[in-house]
Simulated assay, not measured.
Amino acid sequence: MNDMSSTPVRKIIHVDMDAFYASVEQRDNPELRGKPVAVGYAAVRGVVAAASYEARIYGVHSAMPSVTARRKCPELIFVPPRFEVYRSVSQQIREIFAEYTSLIEPLSLDEAYLDVTDNLKGMEIATEIASEIRSKIKQLTGLNASAGISYNKFLAKMASDLNKPNGQAVITPKNGPAFVEQLPVKKFHGVGPATAEKMHRLGIETGADLKQQSIELLTGHFGKSGPYFYGIARGIDNRQVKPDRVRKSIGAEDTFSQDIHSYEPAREGLQSLIEKVWGYCEANEIGAKTVTLKVKYADFTQITRSKTVPAALPGIADLEEVVSLLLAPIFPPKKGIRLLGVSLSSLERRAALTQPQLRLAL
């Protein structure tokens, strides 16, 4: 692992819109302003796609089953998602980013990394760039954005959460390693609940604990992620900001706190994963033809089920339909389900999809 002295100091900004979907709905409907709003459906199988800050006070958050959200906040107002509107606003924001740099890596419709080391305006101070960008976003869209500024992607992402909402924070090369050391590993970006639990079993609770581990131990327990964990424990992350990157696949998975035995909670658990992978495709204007469902059982055996459609999926409803088709036949399961995952492959740029997209006959 390289030390800091071998890596040129970069200026990375992570911009993250505040409660993006919910804020767009409150912007467009004055009656929703100042009220607890959930983007999603109040149906029994519904899942919250986004929650306003007024709703978050009650403990409502994205990926929460709608019935749970309603129980926590009886006054919660559900609003159906309008992805075409969110996509349009996201494009407006992207055009602001492009005034400053061509090195833009979208993560979803509402967040992106920017490398402003050598920026188009010749500005030397990255915090000033972030402030300008946030101000322009507010002027153009009426929405608030938060930003994190640092010398690598991991710390920029962590910094963007420090002064939310409508704020920004900087983590300097001098302060980076100490910041990581005091941070609980469960709050690390890239460390999910299952990985955090595995780290806890190894006695790793904080960044300082992680820093004590050898790269061999981390690789042995966490595979390809081992070197990454070894680096970020020292405030090192050499990943580049990669614009226009087309991955071979994009996926998300989640380990449940209790094993699942019935269809309804499994389908609810998959909704946030569906929205995550679809959001990446939307933000990067990517189409996908192959959907894969991953199922890991309580005894750690796992299966995958895939379906490839003739043309790229035109909308999130089509993805939801394919996932449901793949999920239904595995019920009732002989064993409890501890993990579910959704991945998309056969990815291609939507610019290459010249044929008109009709709703797929699945």
Score class of each variant (00 low, 15 high):
residue 249 S to R: 00
residue 251 G to N: 02
residue 252 A to Q: 11
residue 252 A to H: 15
residue 253 E to G: 10
residue 253 E to A: 13
residue 254 D to W: 06
residue 255 T to G: 10
residue 255 T to S: 15
residue 257 S to V: 14
residue 257 S to I: 14
residue 258 Q to C: 07
residue 258 Q to N: 06
residue 258 Q to F: 08
residue 259 D to A: 12
residue 260 I to Y: 05
residue 263 Y to A: 13
residue 263 Y to L: 13
residue 263 Y to N: 04
residue 264 E to Y: 08
residue 266 A to N: 13
residue 271 Q to Y: 04
residue 271 Q to L: 03
residue 273 L to Y: 12
residue 274 I to K: 12
residue 275 E to K: 06
residue 278 W to H: 00
residue 278 W to S: 08
residue 279 G to M: 05
residue 279 G to P: 02
residue 280 Y to I: 09
residue 283 A to I: 14
residue 283 A to P: 00
residue 285 E to P: 02
residue 286 I to M: 02
residue 287 G to N: 03
residue 288 A to C: 10
residue 290 T to L: 06
residue 292 T to S: 06
residue 292 T to F: 03
residue 293 L to T: 00
residue 294 K to D: 11
residue 294 K to F: 11
residue 295 V to C: 02
residue 297 Y to A: 09
residue 297 Y to R: 04
residue 297 Y to G: 02
residue 299 D to W: 12
residue 300 F to M: 15
residue 301 T to L: 15
residue 306 S to F: 09
residue 306 S to Y: 03
residue 309 V to R: 05
residue 310 P to R: 11
residue 310 P to Y: 05
residue 312 A to P: 09
residue 312 A to E: 07
residue 312 A to T: 12
residue 313 L to N: 00
residue 314 P to Q: 05
residue 314 P to D: 07
residue 315 G to A: 05
residue 318 D to W: 07
residue 318 D to C: 11
residue 319 L to N: 04
residue 320 E to P: 06
residue 320 E to S: 14
residue 322 V to M: 02
residue 324 S to I: 00
residue 325 L to W: 03
residue 325 L to K: 13
residue 326 L to D: 00
residue 326 L to E: 01
residue 326 L to I: 07
residue 331 F to N: 00
residue 331 F to S: 02
residue 331 F to H: 02
residue 332 P to I: 09
residue 335 K to E: 08
residue 335 K to R: 14
residue 336 G to S: 14
residue 336 G to M: 15
residue 336 G to V: 09
residue 338 R to M: 08
residue 339 L to M: 14
